[in-house]
């Protein structure tokens, strides 16, 4: 990740489009990854990424350099992604049925597909669908972005014990789901 100087942040806060583009180039792919893993839908991920950076642009003047810019942007991204995921679930009134999730995982067997990467992506998304939005945010920040527990706590505005318990419960769910999948395969 390229470093963004304080001067660039200040220029962007004053309305410099060039400075803001540098910020987008530095953090855009990370935000998109987090949001995509949270939502598992390319169009939604693009829309939310757009909202994240418009929000960052509007609020940049209030950024006080008390935390890192990366953490600050991640916080905006995870908040918007969690809200979007919860809203979508409410609107569709759905918690994807366990059978439906298992079908996704079983169908994503790389041996049956030429595109192994696509199959892996589908498998990962299906696994993440098992989790609720809060657990998913913790796992995505930890396992995809490599944030420490402390950074996750700061990003999500929760304490360390909550980070730990969400990771534990999320991973327990994944293990239980995996056992169900194996049972269906046999």
């Amino acid at each position: 990740m390229r470093e963004i100087s304080e001067a660039t942040v200040r220029d962007a806060a004053q309305g410099s489009v060039e400075a803001f583009e540098a910020i987008y180039k530095a953090y855009g792919p990370y935000v998109y990854n987090v949001v995509y893993r949270m939502l598992h839908h390319a169009d939604d991920a693009q829309d939310v990424t757009q909202e994240v950076f418009v929000t960052v642009y509007r609020k940049l003047k209030t950024f006080g350099f008390r935390s890192s810019l990366k953490t600050w942007i991640y916080r905006i991204a995870t908040n918007l992604a969690i809200n979007h995921a919860k809203k979508r679930e409410r609107e569709q009134n759905r918690t994807v049925a366990l059978d439906e999730k298992m079908e996704s995982v079983l169908a994503s067997n790389p041996a049956d597909r030429a595109d192994v990467r696509h199959a892996q992506r589908e498998q990962v998304s299906a696994l993440l669908e098992v989790l609720n939005a809060d657990q998913r945010a913790c796992l995505v920040l930890r396992d995809f972005e490599g944030l420490s527990y402390e950074e996750i706590a700061q990003t999500l505005g929760i304490n360390l014990n909550t980070v730990r318990s969400r990771l534990k419960r999320g991973r327990e769910k994944l293990l239980a789901f995996s056992k169900e999948v194996i049972r269906h395969e046999m």
Binding site: Y32, Y36, R117, Q120, R121, D143, L174
Partner: peptide, 14 residues
């Protein structure tokens, strides 16, 4: 189950 699928996942670009 909980580590390998995520660590092997490719990065996505907008």
């Amino acid at each position: 189950v909980v580590m390998e699928p995520f660590r092997q996942a490719d990065r996505l670009y907008p």
